[in-house]
Simulated scan of single mutants.
Amino acid sequence: MKLKTVISLAICIGAFSAFANYSFNKNLTLTFGRLPTSHGAPRHFSMNESRKGNYPILSFGGNWDGMALSYGIAAGQAVKLVYTPVSSIPFDGQLTDGLTDKDGEAVDVNVPSYALIYEMEKSNFASANNFYFTLTYYSIKDMPTLPSTGATGSNLYLTLQRTSLYTELTGIAGSHFDVYAHAVSTKADSEGEIIQTKGGWLTDKDSDSVSGSAYGLGVRYSLAPNMKLGVEYFAGGENAFLYDSSSQDPANIYTTYGTGYHLFYSHDFEGGFKMVVGHTTKNSEYGRYVFNLIGATSEIDNTETNGYAKFIASF
C-alpha cells in the first residue's frame, strides 16, 4: 500500500462567471457564454454556500462555453437543453492549426456535445424545509484524442454518454441536518488507440464499449447559521468515466476509482470572509496510464490523505 499525505493552504478572492440570460417570457430563458458547468453540487455543502445554478459535478465537471434553453414546465420544475462545443486539447495543452492523426488526415478539434436536464425544487417538502432533484443526460460523439501538438501517433476517438442524478434535502424534520446523494452511470465507446500507450478510453483494446457507475452520499449539521460541520463519502467503480477538469484541488474526491471520504468545517465571518478546513482520504483501487482514463486498467492499493484550509474573501 502506498500512503501519501498532503497539506494545502488556499487563499481565494472573489469568483468568476461569464454568462448572460435572455428571457423570451416567464417560462422560456436562453443562457449563453461560459455556462455554470463547474464547481457544482455538492461543492456548496462544504463551502457553506447556497446552491446556485451550477450543474452538478457528476453531470459536467469542466469549464464549457455554449448555450442552454430552459423551459419552466410547472411550478418548481424545468427542463433544459444544453449545447456545449468541446475542444479536444493535445496532451501538452497547446492548440495549433494543421493537426493530423496517425494517417496524416486533418483532425477537427471542435466537436458538439449536448445535455438534457430536468430539475425540480419544492419548499416544505414532506418533512424537509427544501427538496431539490435534477436528472441529466449528457452525450458527446467522436471526440478526437491528440497525443501532442502537431504530432502523429493517435487515431483514438471517444463517444461518451453520462446519466447523472443529484438530490438534496435541507432542514430535515425541522432539525439542523441536511443530506444529499448523487450518482452517475457512464458508457464510453472507444475507437482506435494512442500508439504509445496501446490502448483506448478505459480499455487496452482498439475498439471497445465500457460501462460503469459511481455514487456519493453526504450529511451536514448546522452548529449555527454561520458554522457547518459535515462528512461525505464517494465510491467510484472500476469502469466509470470520472473526470473534473475544472478542479486542481488535491482534496477533490469525485474522481476517485475506489472510495473517498471528506470531513469538513466551514465558518462564515462578517464582511464577506470565510474559512473552510477539511480532511480527505482517497483509497484508489484502479489506475490507468493517461489521465487515469486511457489504457489498460491496473489494480492498485494507494491511499492519499489531504488536509486543507481555505480563506475566502467575497466582495
Rank of each mutant, 00 (worst) to 15 (best):
G14E: 07
S17Y: 10
A18C: 06
N21I: 10
S23M: 11
T29Y: 06
L35R: 08
P42D: 01
M47R: 10
R51Q: 13
G53H: 09
Y55L: 12
G66V: 13
G66L: 12
G66W: 11
M67N: 09
A68F: 03
A78G: 01
T84H: 05
S88W: 00
S88P: 02
S88Q: 01
L95I: 08
G98D: 04
D108V: 03
Y114T: 06
A115L: 05
S123A: 12
F125E: 02
T134Q: 13
L135D: 11
Y137W: 08
G150E: 06
T152N: 01
T152Y: 00
S154V: 00
S154L: 04
N155F: 03
N155L: 00
L165C: 03
T167E: 05
D178Q: 07
A181C: 05
A183I: 08
V184T: 05
S185V: 11
K187N: 12
A188F: 05
A188E: 00
D189M: 08
E193A: 11
Q196M: 11
S207D: 15
V210N: 03
Y215Q: 06
V219I: 15
V219H: 11
S222M: 02
K228A: 04
G230S: 07
V231H: 12
G236W: 04
L242W: 03
L242I: 07
S245M: 07
S246A: 15
N252V: 10
T255M: 07
Y261F: 11
F264K: 01
Y265N: 04
S266Q: 00
H267C: 04
E270A: 11
K274D: 09
V276A: 04
K282A: 14
G287L: 10
R288V: 14
Y289I: 15
F291C: 15
E299V: 14
I300T: 12
T303Y: 02
E304N: 08
G307C: 13
A309K: 09
I312V: 14
